[in-house]
Design a protein around this nucleic acid. Structure first.
Length: 490
RNA sequence: GGCCCCAUGGUCAAGUGGACUAAGACACCGGUCUUUCAAGCCGGUAACCCGGGUUCGAAUCCCGGUGGGGUCACCA
């Protein structure tokens, strides 16, 4: 497909949530698949709701997910600027054209008056549409209102008959009776355009070829089509993708727990897993795999595979996929990702040296198959970084008997002589001791695990030992022996 | 409420008139492996919203109903 130009156009009123991320992803995939251009545009025309930090938060989330844009507010591009608040003169120019052509007109009704009109209509059981009362004001009447100091909003002249047909790649032709539409506002009285106007002006001027957005915008599309027609611009191809719903089947919102990309990041999810999961929500490559490398997703991506029905997102599946990635990704990648979590817990310094990094790598390899998130990984690995841990109470009851001290002392003795301190040598030595003592493996292994990790569950004991290193193992055994002698329950 | 979209297990989904006794995955349940917990492996429970058509034949096409969702702002 030649000349594909798509855009993701969030408004900086909050953080990027997974629904927005999925829309951005589909746009990005479509652009990359078709060697097109992915544009980021900020729709910051709502002065009231704009949040100062929101813009950088959204950009950060997008970058973190790996969804890079070719044109955008931070890097410019041939059709900029890419912030609507910086394009006001463009909208005014286009609005003026419409006004001159008689395709738009000033409306002097105040928001209060409009609210009252809507209320009245509702009382009568009518649709709350604007009745067009300012449409045929004479020049004198307009002047009169201007004299009162009224600042007009601008409305589009909408035909009161016929139908507007939206041609959507996924949904086919969707018809809207023009009588269900009204003369909607395109420029607010403060000189700032409304969404349906700014969006069309920008998509036209920025040469957008395909508008890929969530289905909630489907009913906006006939209005926008009317704007395209009035402006004399050709409409792009529309693709309304299914929405992502919360587990209770309602629209995603803050009260549904973690929904923002940064929340998932902070909870220890990998961008690889999130992107993979999101790609599969509302789209299917047609094969049976769940884990698909991004490069392949790009290759396989097609609008044909996008479904029509809304999808409920399932954190459990995301979590499962995250665990899959934790195990499949190169360990260096996992190390890099887990470092912030280790720093936050004070386990590694701000700027770890090569030896520390090598150690973290071993820890990651030892622990990663039994956790689902980076946060869990860091917690599960705590005893690899600090000697300051307590013994799990139920473990103490079960495995730390007075006579255990002697058992651990024997283990320590054997361990002290082990060389080299590698997996097979350590295991062979310990197993020999077990055989010699004529006890079950668990009888020695469980107390030892508790002694060196403080826990009753975790990686294989010998893996822990080797990763931890001889000195720390011996020290911890000594400490446990002392502890049992002084505080073990009788 | 008007308008619009949608409808396969709890969830994501394959399926485009016969190969459907309906795939796969998550979750759940069992088993297996094991020093524990995971992971892995093996197995199991579980779905075509309902009613009419069309057709030799319908999960698949049509109509109606029901259900869910979206949208009706000087928000985007």
């Amino acid at each position: 497909m030649a000349g594909v130009r798509v855009r993701f156009a969030p408004s900086p009123t909050g953080s990027l949530h997974i629904g927005g991320a999925r829309t951005a992803l589909f746009n990005w995939l479509f652009a990359r698949k078709n060697r097109g251009t992915f544009i980021l545009r900020l729709e910051d025309t709502d002065v009231e709701r704009n949040l100062a930090e929101a813009e950088s938060g959204i950009l950060t989330s997008l970058r973190w997910l790996g969804l890079d844009w070719d044109e955008g507010p931070d890097r410019g591009g041939p059709w900029g600027p890419y912030r609507q608040s910086e394009r006001l003169d463009l909208y005014r120019r286009e609005a003026e054209r419409l006004l001159q052509a008689g395709l738009a007109y000033p409306c002097y009704c105040t928001p209060e008056e409009l609210a009252r009109q809507r209320e009245e209509a509702r009382q009568k059981g009518l649709a709350p549409r604007y009745d067009g009362r300012c449409r045929h004001l004479t020049t004198a009447e307009r002047r009169e209102r201007e004299a009162e100091g009224r600042k007009p909003a601008l409305r589009l002249v909408v035909p009161q008959e016929g139908v507007t047909v939206v041609r959507d790649v996924i949904r086919g032709e969707v018809s809207f009776d023009n009588r269900t539409l009204d003369d909607f506002i395109i420029m607010k009285s403060n000189g700032i355009p409304t969404y349906n106007f700014a969006c069309v002006v920008d998509d036209s001027l920025m040469q957008i070829s395909h508008v890929i957005r969530a289905e909630e915008h489907l009913s906006n599309t006939p209005k926008q089509l009317l704007v395209y027609a009035a402006l004399g611009y050709e409409a792009p191809v529309f693709i309304h993708v299914p929405m992502i719903l919360a587990p209770d089947r309602s629209k995603l919102s803050k009260r549904h727990g973690a929904t923002a990309v940064e929340e998932f990041r902070d909870a220890g999810y990998l961008p690889e897993a999130i992107v993979n999961y999101l790609a599969l929500l509302g789209w299917s490559p047609g094969d049976e795999r769940e884990m698909i490398p991004l490069e392949e997703v790009i290759e396989l991506f097609s609008l044909d595979g996008v479904s029509r029905s809304a999808a409920v997102y399932d954190v459990k599946k995301l979590t499962w996929l995250n665990a899959q990635y934790l195990n499949a990704l190169p360990s260096e990648r996992v190390v890099a990702a887990v470092l912030p979590f280790l720093r936050a817990r004070g386990f590694v310094p701000e700027d770890p040296d090569a030896a520390t990094l090598a150690y973290v790598t071993e820890v990651v390899k030892t622990v990663r198959s039994r956790v689902h998130t980076l946060a869990e990984l860091a917690d599960a690995a705590a005893y690899f970084f600090t000697d300051d841990f307590t013994y799990e109470e139920k473990g103490v009851r079960k495995f730390f008997k007075p006579e255990t001290a002697e058992l651990l002392a024997r283990g320590r003795e054997v361990l002290a002589r082990v060389s080299p301190f590698d997996l097979s040598t350590v295991e062979n030595a310990y197993r020999s001791l077990i055989a010699e003592l004529g006890i079950s493996g668990g009888a020695l292994i469980h107390p030892t695990r508790l002694a060196i990790s403080g826990r009753t569950v975790g990686p294989g004991l010998f893996d822990i030992m080797v990763t931890l290193g001889k000195e720390r193992c011996l020290a911890r055994l000594d400490r446990a022996i002392r502890w049992i002698k002084t505080c073990a329950p009788r």
